[in-house]
């Protein structure tokens, strides 16, 4: 990532946002995918701090995305600072452990760009964003069941009178299909525990 001293930034967050518990996740190649993890309950204050501070400001939120690791879920905020002298970029991560009703605070009031991104994250992972101005699904139909990008997701049988997987058009012996079903089953048992 560009022009970010991670340790210094994590320290700054910890000093200014109490309970944020910012930690640096370094990778082998420290210049590429390092990130900062913070507490899910403090995400709004952390993003607010990152936006408003004088030392290392970030003036844009580029993406909000979800990841399902089965044991936990993660929301990643990719922040950036567009500036001719010191442009920078940062991956900010929060961990959500509750699979039944996961929720984090919305940052739409800070960055309007988060509106659709958070809706997509809700649509695909079922992570609720508190205080979101328009908390609907964005891609799937409103009456769709389940959250498609979760690892233990199984699609519904019938939608609106249409069969989602008509038996006469499926090849259940397909190797990839069996592998995929095994992966889903494994994720389901893992998520149940």
């Amino acid at each position: 990532m560009l022009n970010v001293d991670f340790n210094k930034l994590a320290e700054l967050i910890n000093q200014n946002v109490s309970g944020a518990n910012a930690t640096v996740n370094t990778t082998e190649d420290a210049k590429t995918d390092s990130s900062i993890s913070v507490e899910a309950s403090k995400i709004f204050s952390v993003v607010e701090f990152l936006k408003t501070n004088k030392e290392m400001p970030f003036n844009a939120l580029q993406a909000v995305s979800g990841v399902d690791y089965v044991e936990w879920m993660e929301v990643c905020y990719i922040m950036a600072h567009f500036d001719l002298t010191t442009p920078r970029e940062l991956i900010l991560k929060v961990k959500v452990t509750d699979r039944v009703s996961p929720a984090v605070d919305s940052v739409v009031s800070l960055y309007p760009a988060a509106n659709f991104q958070e809706r997509e994250c809700y649509d695909m992972f079922g992570i609720k964003f508190n205080n979101h101005p328009d908390p609907r699904r964005i891609l799937c139909p409103d009456d769709w069941e389940g959250f498609p990008l979760r690892k233990d997701y199984v699609a519904q049988k019938v939608y609106n009178g249409m069969e989602v997987f008509p038996d006469h058009k499926m090849n259940y012996d397909d190797r990839e299909f069996i592998v995929r079903q095994d992966m889903i089953k494994k994720a389901q048992t893992q998520a149940a525990n």
């Binding site: 498609p148 249409m162 058009k169």
Partner: peptide, 20 residues
């Protein structure tokens, strides 16, 4: 015709427009 690349795993695609 039949769902194309989404015919086996695509949860969101109708498996052929002849269904409707």
């Amino acid at each position: 015709n039949k769902g194309g690349p989404y015919w086996q795993h695509g949860y969101h695609v109708l498996k052929g427009v002849d269904e409707v």
